[in-house]
Amino acid sequence: MSLIKVVMAKMGFDAHYRGAMMVARHLVQRGMEVVYIGNRLPEEIVRTVIDEDAQVLGLSSLSGNHMVMVPRILALLRQEGVERVKVLLGGVIPTEDQKELLSQGVSAVFGTGSSLDAIADWIEAAVDHGSDAVRA
């Protein structure tokens, strides 16, 4: 059986990891596999997604760096031909930036105050993980 695999990363120097850790912990509780890689460059993040064959990429930004880093990651995913990967963005993301990034290819944005279950539910619904996956 295959679990849903999620790569989670912080972008650039953004130092707030608590939200990303809470989400990571909860997704594991919900039966997913989470690979947390810490603060990385867009190239390293995309490389990890490919190497891990992840269905979901979780990005967290609370420092305001999302408008620089996220488009670059989306472009790299397209360039590498892995745009099917669901990209989730969490953190402090102003509404207008959310719209812009969603139009560029982010699959969903979960701002501060989002429920952990809502995030997990969204992933489960969005990922076509094949008929052999069994989860509690």
Partner: peptide, 23 residues
Amino acid sequence: FDFVTNRGFSSDHPLAEGDVGQG
């Protein structure tokens, strides 16, 4: 100070691009 400064990196570090002057 921004995170780049606070961690003692230069603003022209490759990882810093989105964070210079943020926060």
